[in-house]
């Protein structure tokens, strides 16, 4: 009964939403701000990956907020799981995991680092890169039965990365009067690794932060959150 009513209501809502979307017809071109980004982004920001330009610079405040979302979620998870630990996992890791654990984390880290570093040049950036790095951590966690060594560095890395993100933003404010303006560093030649102002730095900060936060959540799931 409840499912039926819920289905009807949800159907109505979705139907209306879809109708609203359909009422435009096919879009003819880029929207107002998209057009500006496509046209000017290259010069203004110096990054050839427009998405990264939007994420890190044009809408950098959103990204700062997003980083805070992940930060608070990780803090909340760690807080809760330190008060109510989940307990030790039941199974022993299989031999596949034990084998790959010795070999794979390196390449995964490298790959993740590459994605992070080239965020302004190729698809990717801090977030996907950080997630990839965190998967390396997951692999290690799955293989270990005791607490892992790198756990205690995670909070430090996370804090420092977040703090540097905020400081980079303030640098822009103090030097150019605009928070998170990336031109505080030289814009360089677009297409090169060292270009686009502070975008690589912010990408790195984001990458480190995301990696350490996701890893922190995984560590908390696996081994509790440490002592209160």
């Amino acid at each position: 009964m409840r499912t039926f009513i819920a289905f009807l209501l949800a159907l109505y809502l979705v139907f209306f939403a879809a109708a609203a979307f359909e009422s435009f017809g096919e879009p003819q071109g880029l929207g107002r701000i998209a057009e500006h980004y496509a046209a000017e982004g290259f010069e203004e920001v110096g990054a050839i990956n427009l998405v990264t330009a939007v994420v890190v610079t044009y809408r950098g405040l959103d990204t700062l907020g997003e980083v805070s979302v992940l930060f608070t979620a990780a803090s909340a998870v760690i807080l809760l799981l330190s008060v109510f630990p989940l307990g030790k996992p039941a199974n022993k890791p299989s031999s596949i995991v034990l084998l790959t654990m010795k070999v794979l984390p390196g390449p995964i880290l490298l790959f993740g680092g590459y994605i992070i570093a080239h965020g302004h040049l190729t698809p990717g950036g801090g977030f996907p890169g950080g997630a990839v790095v965190a998967s390396a951590a997951l692999l290690v966690l799955l293989g270990c039965t005791q607490e892992v060594g790198f756990a205690k560095w995670l909070t430090f890395a996370e804090s420092m990365a977040g703090f540097s993100f905020a400081m980079l933003g303030f640098w822009g404010l103090l030097k150019l009067g605009q928070f998170l303006n990336n031109s505080v560093l030289f814009l360089g030649i677009p297409g090169q690794l060292l270009s686009a102002g502070i975008i690589p730095l912010i990408s790195a900060a984001i990458g480190v932060k995301v990696a350490s936060e996701l890893s922190g959540i995984l560590v908390a799931y696996r081994c509790g959150g440490g002592k209160e």
Binding site: A34, A38, L50, V54, P123, F127, V210
Partner: peptide, 29 residues
């Protein structure tokens, strides 16, 4: 929406909208 040499001049008619992709990045996280 990656501006390489081939589309540098015609970016506004050659790329999809980068903004929703940015929004989705944030939203997924």
């Amino acid at each position: 929406p990656i501006i390489d040499a081939s589309i540098e001049e015609i970016a506004t008619v050659a790329v999809v909208d980068p903004v929703p992709q940015a929004l989705v990045l944030t939203s997924i996280v």
